[in-house]
């Protein structure tokens, strides 16, 4: 699978850019630039999700993360200052401690993860195979991911639909269709 190998390098490039954006967000003092960078972070991670074949996750990430959260962040910026103030050293140490402990726990858990593409992993062994086998009879949709999302896990998708609805509300808010009619200024 030469194509698989090649997409791997694109994954590395995207992840490297994610790391750069993350560090830039930490170093930056200007809040507006940080809002821009978080939008870019969402775009990048959604592109990465696409390259990992998680198209549905990428769809939600692009709609909510890149578009609406940028709008919400800008709305929040209207209520606060434009720059951030430096914090005391004590808080830095507490934050570092929390991050190190969480990172150590995640690394510890990483040892139990199955290898990527392992046919005996839980993802590929139990219910996933049933979906593949039963979708043609049960639902008769060519795309199995769609069948799983819209039928087998319908309630889960209903929750996601609420999220997308919120995104639509954000767009309506932004364009201000109708809007206020009073003529103050």
């Amino acid at each position: 699978m030469a194509n698989l190998d090649l997409t791997q390098y694109l994954d590395y490039a995207l992840i490297a850019m994610l790391v750069v954006v993350g560090i830039a967000i930490i170093r930056m003092k200007n809040l507006f630039a940080i809002v821009m960078l978080t939008g870019t972070y969402s775009l990048l991670s959604a592109a990465w999700f696409v390259s990992l074949d998680a198209v549905d996750v990428a769809f939600t990430e692009a709609a909510v993360g890149a578009g609406i959260s940028t709008v919400l962040m800008l709305g929040a910026m209207l209520l606060t200052a434009r720059d951030c103030k430096p914090e005391g050293k004590a808080r830095h140490i507490v934050a570092l401690l929390v991050v190190v402990i969480t990172g150590a726990a995640l690394l510890y858990a990483l040892g139990d993860m199955p290898i990527y593409g392992d046919p005996n992993s839980p993802v590929n062994a139990y219910v996933g195979m049933d979906y593949v086998a039963m979708t043609p009879n049960d639902i008769n949709v060519p795309n199995i991911v769609t069948a799983v999302l819209a039928s087998y896990r319908g309630f889960d998708t209903l929750g996601e639909t609420f999220v997308v609805f919120t995104a639509g509300l954000g767009v309506a808010l932004l364009l201000g269709l109708g809007g206020r009619k009073e003529e103050e200024n």
């Binding site: 709609a63 709008v71 209207l78 269709l177 809007g179 206020r180």
Partner: peptide
């Protein structure tokens, strides 16, 4: 979808700078 979302975000940013509010109607 990205192309559409990108447009929305850019409009929001420019509106933010021009009006200092996201509450201004198109009219």
């Amino acid at each position: 979808l990205y192309a559409l979302i990108n447009f929305i975000a850019t409009i929001a940013i420019l509106k933010f700078f021009r009006y200092r509010s996201l509450d201004v109607a198109l009219s």
